[in-house]
Amino acid sequence: MNFQVYNRDICVGDIRVIGVSSSSLLMVGDAETIQLAATFDTPAESLIVGPFVPLSPDIS
């Protein structure tokens, strides 16, 4: 594939962002490669009903 880009005038007024979080990127500039990955686990799979028991301890 032949991919050609002509960057002409880029002039932005205001950028307003609430949050950039969890390995996110806000960039004003150029990059050759950008590789982003995310995994996310949330209930119902991780919903625990019952007495409060600690998670397995941090052994590191």
Binding site: D14, I15, R16, V17, I18, G19, V20, S21, S22, S23, S24, L25, L26, M27, V28, G29, D30, A31, E32, T33, I34, Q35, L36, A37, A38, T39, F40
Partner: peptide, 24 residues
Amino acid sequence: IDILGASSSSIVHLGNSRNIAMEA
């Protein structure tokens, strides 16, 4: 540019870069 917060290994970058890899 107005940003309230950047958190958890995130990046606000003014300028150029070459290779960027980020994982959450």
